[in-house]
Design a protein around this nucleic acid. Structure first.
Length: 569
DNA sequence: GCCGTTTTCGGCCCGACTGTTTTCAGTCG
């Protein structure tokens, strides 16, 4: 019985209890227990008394112990007998929660999407207390979409939607300020919908503009404070716009940025101080409402430093305040170590990329075009590589306060050999090795290839170690833990590829790398100048793993970096 | 079901919205 299975079982019990219409606090107790177990960094074997973990008590602790000892839970078994499985997916239908589904099941025998549809079509639902004709129609409409619409959209897709919406909001003169909120602002890999918070004194005008200018599939709701729509783009995207007065903006933004658990923790803290947080401000013990100009001020009001959205997750972040100052910010970044030019499949020249790095205020950078094997990307032969070195040299001579290093993103070939000979590699300042082909090899073979690269004296870094594309492909599924141990053993860098398509390594693996103090490079893998801006996403993502600055290679000084690449030759 | 350095009982974050209702329950974020 592994930890994940136990966590899932506790969550399942919560679902079933919800479907029984149980006391919501009891339901959430099981969710909290699951969450507490997940947040605890220890493995199952290392925990001797589960009830010592906050959130796990006698009841949930007993379930956990029973699961470990017998592999089963009597509580869950009984629930499964009382409540049909088919009800669980129905909880996803908006408007249907545990109580209503329990009623539908008990009164009408609804136990699946099909039977729910039947009950609605025969107009039995509208006669139940608490239901009506409108609810019935809404359920029917939702059932059509059921299982069709994508549950969650990836960050790389939403990124562009957000940019467009930001442009639109900037153009509306009644909008005083605005920000995206929700899980997108927290840099989650995928989000269910987008949330925007808008400060305005004329919500009706803003609403009018939004409704007239957006490409809308459906208006879900449209009130004074909230416009809720489904946009008809390449995908169907749900977006909520919350309109508030300027004085309420900061607390509303904080509220809708979440996460839910973070908000709960903040409100508990406020309560301990005799205050009350709501979307509209912070109520003081004397009843006065305090507003804020910025989130920094808001946190300071509770004696807290600014907590970046990216780490507002479990609420645990409030126990890690000392570590906040170790989190990387854009100001700490002095370099980008992975990018492409027109030599391979990039859009801009060596010179243009170099200039763009200087524009961003960096101190150094590495040009890393593809190697010869990758023909589709116009990979460089040793001869073309040498020609590129001349350009890099010329660039450096013209820019004395900036250093461009000559690198490569060299393919690790399917047979485990490397794409350049040692006599080419030793001439390069910085060698990235990565896999772009034969993803479907067995893990053993993949690991052989990665090992060949990571133990090679001229290789400095492994790029996008798993090859995943978020919500598109899984990548080649290496044993990442093993890879991290190798990086430690051979003193190599692992990449956090900052492209929103990749974000590779993922948070979980970054945490492990940090424990072992493996250096991480946050790189954009830019194929054009504007993609150098992926650094912002990479940084926020690194924060989610609580990566310390010192371990992040591109916060190092150029001297530190030079020492590292020399050492590895 | 969980929790407690005022508490072993009575709270559990808070407010808006919706659709159902004549004052509110359920759902949602």
């Amino acid at each position: 019985m592994n930890k994940k299975t136990i966590i899932r079982t506790l969550e399942k019990i919560a679902l079933y209890l919800e479907l029984q219409g149980e006391n919501p606090f009891k339901v959430s107790a099981f969710r909290k227990a699951a969450n507490a177990l997940e947040t605890d960094e220890r493995s199952l074997d290392e925990i001797d008394d589960f009830t010592k973990i906050k959130g796990i008590g006698k009841g949930t602790g007993a379930v956990i112990v029973e699961l470990i000892q017998t592999g089963e839970s009597q509580v869950l078994k009984e629930l499964e007998q009382q409540v049909p499985k088919g009800l669980i997916p129905l909880l996803k239908i908006p408007g249907l929660g545990g109580k209503k589904l329990a009623k539908l099941y008990q009164e009408l025998g609804v136990d699946s999407a099909e039977s729910l549809k039947e009950a609605c079509e025969s107009k039995k639902v509208r006669n139940l207390p608490g239901f009506g004709a409108k609810t019935e129609e809404k359920i029917l409409k939702e059932l059509e979409q059921f299982g069709v619409r994508k549950e969650r959209l990836p960050i790389w897709y939403l990124e562009n939607v957000v940019k467009e919406l930001e442009q639109l909001l900037s153009s509306i003169k009644e909008v005083e300020r605005f920000s995206v909120a929700g899980s997108f602002r927290r840099v989650n890999e995928t989000s269910k919908d987008l949330d925007f918070v808008i400060a305005t004194e004329c919500p009706e005008k803003v609403r009018e503009q939004l409704l007239s200018q957006l490409k809308i599939k459906e208006i879900v709701g449209s009130g004074d404070t909230k416009v809720s729509v489904v946009l008809d783009l390449d995908e169907l995207v749900s977006v909520d716009f919350r309109m508030v007065k300027n004085v309420e903006y900061v607390t509303t933004l904080h509220h809708f940025t979440g996460s839910k658990d973070h908000n709960v923790r903040m409100r508990q803290l406020a309560k301990e101080q005799g205050k009350k947080i709501s979307e509209y401000g912070v109520e003081q013990p004397d009843g006065q409402i305090v507003a804020f100009q910025s989130e920094e001020e808001f946190f300071a009001h509770f004696g807290l430093p600014f907590i970046p959205p990216s780490v507002r997750e479990s609420g645990q972040e409030l126990e890690r305040l000392d570590e906040l100052k170790n989190l990387v910010t854009l100001n700490d970044i002095k370099a980008d170590l992975h990018m492409h030019t027109t030599y391979s499949d990039g859009a801009h020249t060596v010179h243009e990329m170099g200039e763009a790095l200087i524009q961003r205020g960096y101190r150094f950078g590495v040009i890393t075009d593809h190697s010869q094997y990758l023909k589709v990307a116009n990979g460089l032969t040793p001869e073309r590589l040498k020609k590129q070195w001349e350009e890099i040299k010329a660039f450096n001579q013209a820019h004395l306060n900036f250093t461009l290093f000559a690198g490569t993103e060299m393919d690790i070939l399917p047979d485990g050999s490397l794409d350049y000979d040692d006599d080419v590699l030793k001439e390069l300042d910085f060698v990235i090795a990565s896999i772009h082909t034969s993803f479907s090899q067995p893990q053993e073979k993949i690991m052989e290839r990665l090992f060949a690269a990571i133990q090679h004296p001229y290789v400095h870094m492994i790029a996008h170690p798993t090859g995943r594309i978020i919500a598109e492909r899984e990548g080649y599924q290496p044993d990442v833990k093993q890879l991290i141990y190798w990086a430690k053993e051979y003193g190599k860098i692992l990449e956090l590829n900052a492209s929103p398509y990749r974000l590779d390594l993922c948070v979980e693996h970054l945490k492990l790398a940090m424990e072992l103090e493996v250096p991480i490079a946050i790189n954009t893998d830019a194929h054009a100048i504007d993609q150098l801006a992926y650094m912002e996403i990479g940084i926020k993502y690194a924060q989610k793993a609580w990566l310390k600055k010192e371990l992040i290679v591109n916060t190092w000084s150029v001297e530190q970096f030079e020492e590292f690449i020399r050492k590895n030759k």
